[in-house]
């Protein structure tokens, strides 16, 4: 009996999660509500069945996610009986940090990077699962499955450990932490095929529907609530759009599409060949931005 590539990827991810459950003192799963998080959560439910996963979910909330993401997040936690922690950076709330006034770089830094560090320190989590994949971007290709962070949450690229066979070294000193990426070896296509095969629920925003959008700098931005300031002469228009990645709605570009089923989404992905991170405004800020963000503690 030959295992399929999805069965082998599934087995590897489950192995990684169990290894963390066995060796970490206080693990947590970062849950971003997107499709990769959906797959990661589904795998966790499998890994520990019939127990529930022995760790909580943590959503680092920027206050600017799509409304459908919040609804979906709360429904999943409730239905699966999981402990969901939500952290919003109180400093950012106080200063009313938002992507419109402060720009994507500052917004992301304070509401995501800083907020994540705050939450990990506050709860004393020593291992945090993240849904990042090596195929997302060139600088991730060499990322370890177990990625070490100093007590200041910094990623030290010179001080990472070789990973051989299925052996992961999870030992660390007090204060140090590990980010663990169980989906390291999955590609975007694997994720979609697995969602299809396993009937994994995902946020409806991935499917195309008529949504109110405005076009800015060649990107379609959905007007998700009335906090979005419209430029003079700008009127939201209803277009058939969907999202290839999900984040803060003012920073996430929609694509025009009629794909409203999983096979149609996968078909579209295979036929239109631009990589998924194109939809993320944050990546365009500077060339080496991802590497820099990672050193600073962004996932």
């Amino acid at each position: 009996m030959t295992l399929t590539h999805l069965q082998r990827l599934e087995a590897e991810s489950i192995h990684i999660m169990r290894e963390v459950a066995a060796e970490a003192d206080n693990p947590v799963m970062l849950y971003s509500v997107g499709k990769d998080s959906a797959v990661m959560l589904h795998l966790a439910m499998k890994a520990f069945h019939p127990s529930v996963p022995p760790f909580p979910l943590l959503h680092v909330d920027t206050r600017w996610k799509f409304r459908e993401m919040y609804a979906f997040r709360d429904r999943m936690a409730r239905e699966l009986g999981l402990d969901l922690l939500v952290h919003i950076n109180p400093d950012g709330v106080e200063k009313d940090i938002n992507p419109f006034t402060h720009g994507s770089a500052i917004h992301t830094d304070i509401m995501k990077t800083e907020a994540l560090k705050q939450a990990l320190t506050h709860y004393g989590f020593d291992v945090a699962f993240g849904g990042a994949r090596r195929d997302e971007e060139k600088s991730r290709a060499k990322e370890r499955v177990f990625s070490f962070r100093t007590a200041q949450h910094r990623w030290d690229p010179k001080n990472q450990r070789p990973e051989l066979w299925k052996l992961y070294n999870a030992r660390k000193h007090p204060g140090e932490s590990i980010r663990v990426f169980p989906l390291s070896n999955w590609t975007e296509l694997d994720i979609w095929q697995y969602i299809h095969l396993e009937n994994i629920p995902i946020v409806p925003l991935y499917f195309s529907a008529m949504r109110p959008v405005v076009e800015r700098n060649g990107t379609l931005i959905m007007v998700d609530d009335d906090r979005m300031p419209l430029n003079p002469g700008e009127t939201p228009m209803l277009r058939s759009v969907r999202f290839r990645t999900l984040g803060c709605y003012p920073l996430t570009g929609a694509v025009e599409s009629t794909a409203d089923t999983l096979p149609a989404i996968i078909q579209e992905m295979l036929l239109t060949r631009t990589s998924e991170r194109q939809g993320r405004v944050i990546d365009h800020d500077s060339a080496a931005s991802m590497e820099k963000k990672k050193q600073e503690g962004y996932f």
Binding site: H5, R134, D135, S139, A141, K142, P157, K158, Q160, P162, S184, N185, T187, L189, A288, E291
Partner: peptide, 19 residues
């Protein structure tokens, strides 16, 4: 990975995917 070499980052194993 030239930039990484300049930064003194150890490049050990990079993983690539195709199907």
């Amino acid at each position: 990975l030239a930039a990484e070499r300049e930064q003194g980052i150890t490049i050990d194993v990079a993983y690539r995917f195709f199907s």
